[in-house]
């Protein structure tokens, strides 16, 4: 059964037609890499899936339930969809531990002790157990991004959306974040990631979706599609990236 389903999704910013009839079906446990040129609509696609942006036509379901931008819906959606941003978006006035504990405490209404135990476990998972009491600004970019992952994981999402989460990092910090993602993939979490890391897409990902001009231009098994692209646009894109 599909976990995330998009059916003929159209999205406009004013007159600007950004998503032009997206069909996409993602099953639990898949690791889907979305690639494509800047401006092809990758971020918009993710943001429609978690209700941050409104789409005008078609339908999106997550775990069988329809996605809208209604506050109530988005909040329910947040229980199944986690999101990691390019620029981390940690809460700077809270410690790392507080960042991770906040939503479990006030959204899931967990007790403080329970939330803290979860937070410590999630920080352990991303290799940052000892940073529990630090403030985000004291951490490197790679560490901040791992905290953001722990924060999302603490809500035990069914699917994790990642929008170019290593693009703002210094090259030497990219590896530590990808390693965490790889570990999560092994554990069977569903990942949908917009990425430029082709090696990661090939080696860890199960499927690659190539977007071009607001459409799913080509998609398929990651190893096949990346070694044997069919469309000229994908060939050209890969030539530019590699």
């Amino acid at each position: 059964m599909s976990l995330v389903n998009l059916h003929q999704v159209h999205k406009y910013y004013g007159d600007h037609h950004v998503l032009k009839g997206i069909d996409l079906d993602i099953k639990a446990g898949e690791v889907v890499s979305i690639i494509g040129k800047s401006g092809s609509g990758k971020s918009t696609l993710l943001r429609c899936i978690n209700g941050l942006e409104q789409y005008q036509e078609g339908g999106i379901t997550v775990d069988g339930k329809e996605v809208t931008t209604e506050d109530i819906q988005v909040r329910r959606l947040a229980l199944s969809v986690g999101m990691i941003f390019q620029n981390f978006n940690l809460f700077p006035h809270m410690t790392v531990g507080e960042n991770v504990m906040l939503a479990p405490t006030i959204v899931l209404k967990k007790s403080k002790a329970e939330a803290e135990a979860t937070a410590r476990a999630m920080l352990e998972k991303v290799g940052l157990a000892e940073k529990f009491d630090s403030f985000p600004e004291k951490l490197s970019g790679g560490q901040q991004q791992r905290v953001a992952i722990a924060r999302a994981l603490a809500m035990s999402p069914k699917v994790l959306l990642c929008d170019e989460i290593t693009s703002a990092l210094d090259p030497e910090l990219v590896g530590e974040v990808l390693k965490v993602l790889e570990q999560l993939a092994k554990e069977g979490i569903t990942l949908v990631l917009v990425t430029h890391e082709m090696n990661f897409a090939r080696d860890v990902g199960s499927r690659v979706v190539f977007m071009h001009q607001g459409k799913v231009w080509e998609q398929g098994d990651s190893k096949t599609i990346l070694s044997n692209p069919q469309t000229d646009e994908l060939k050209q894109f890969m030539g530019a990236v590699l």
């Binding site: 941050l52 229980l79 999101m83 620029n87 809460f91 006030i106 959204v107 999302a152 809500m155």
Partner: peptide, 27 residues
Amino acid sequence: LPKGQWEASRCLGLSFLQTLRHIILPQ
């Protein structure tokens, strides 16, 4: 305050008032 603070809160399931109280106002 960066727009990302609102978006991150929303993605974590915080309501408008919870976001205001815990994220926006303190900053």
